[in-house]
Design a protein around this nucleic acid. Structure first.
Lengths: 182, 182
DNA sequence: CCACAATATGGAGACTGTCTCCGTTTTAGC
DNA sequence: GCTAAAACGGAGACAGTCTCCATATTGTGG
């Protein structure tokens, strides 16, 4: 990659991070280009779709999400607390940019999406937590990590969409009660 | 309301019902106007926002959803089956038009939304089911009907957004396990 | 039954956002 | 430095939202 290309790529990404945080992932891409000081053509060459841009920003959090999963396991807390903590961290990360949660929900089961791979990384992180607890015999039989992931992403999406800023805790408690051994 | 106004109002609504079913609630409003044989101005006078149009179509299902809730209670099934059946019906209704589920999630906690009142009607229907089971002592203490509603709408939203057409049953089973008495 | 005030219409067009094309500029290797 | 390859940027085509207002339709009181 040529030096000027790399420079612009980075500028666009840095600007997108700011704008997406301020105004959510549906902000105008032309405006991001303008604020980054590049032409729209340049933005679209580097990131052919809005999803590709969101995806590039996701790298940050997939790392953090992965780390959080392992940290949760390492605490050795009881199943309920461990899950609640993990789910809350997960939701905090994916709702960082307004509108991102529902994009993740959509990408999760769509291998054609550029975000699919990152979703898998997060899915794997979640699977580690679930498998760990399952191995300890803490979960109901038949709990499926992928479905848990969908369910929690759904909660994230509701919280993100909701105008009132919602406390996700009570919803997560229901989910946790639904998966830990009775 | 003048006769010609009523005529156009009805034509727009009928067309919107078709187009929203075919292509989801994000279809072009100008195209709905064109297919209804009216000018865009006429559409926007009757329905100032897309939400207002979705809202007008919702009347159909709030009625059906309400009826379904009472039907579920009347079956006298055990708590788990009753809830699963009710939740599935509810999701079937609100995912009839692609994109509607997430609009409902957004409107549910936003009294300023034109759809808010209809959301309340559906919320009340859900509350009747939950309260009924709670009175029978079938539920965990502290289950909140509003949160159940949000959770199930979240599942609907995930199913609606998902490219793969997802089986909601396993997710609903987790939710049900989370709210019925252990 | 008809005139006319009130009401409703529709489509031109302003505006915003997406995305592409291509003449011009920048870079890197020789 | 020269040059081919790579990258740039912005004009503009296109699509969707929404408004304004000259024109047309309605229904009512005389």
């Amino acid at each position: 990659m040529r030096a000027d290309a790399r420079r612009n790529y980075d500028k666009i990404l840095a600007t997108a991070r700011i704008v997406f945080t301020e105004r959510g992932t549906d902000s105008s891409l032309d405006e991001i280009a303008k604020r980054a000081g590049v032409g729209p053509g340049t933005l679209y060459r580097h990131f052919p779709t809005r999803e590709a841009l969101v995806d590039a920003l996701m790298q940050d959090w997939t790392d953090r999400v992965s780390a959080d999963a392992d940290a949760a396991i390492a605490t050795g807390q009881p199943a309920r607390e461990m899950l609640l903590g993990w789910f809350e961290h997960f939701i905090d990360h994916i709702t960082l940019h307004r509108g991102a949660a529902s994009k993740i929900c959509a990408a999760m089961d769509d291998p054609a999406s550029p975000m699919y791979r990152k979703c898998r990384v997060m899915g794997d992180a979640n699977r580690r937590v679930i498998d760990h607890l399952d191995a300890e015999g803490e979960l109901r039989p038949g709990v499926d990590a992928a479905n848990v992931m969908r369910l929690v992403s759904g909660v994230a999406s509701v919280a993100d969409t909701s105008h009132a800023d919602l406390d996700v805790r009570p919803m997560l408690e229901v989910v946790v009660d639904g998966i830990v051994r009775a």
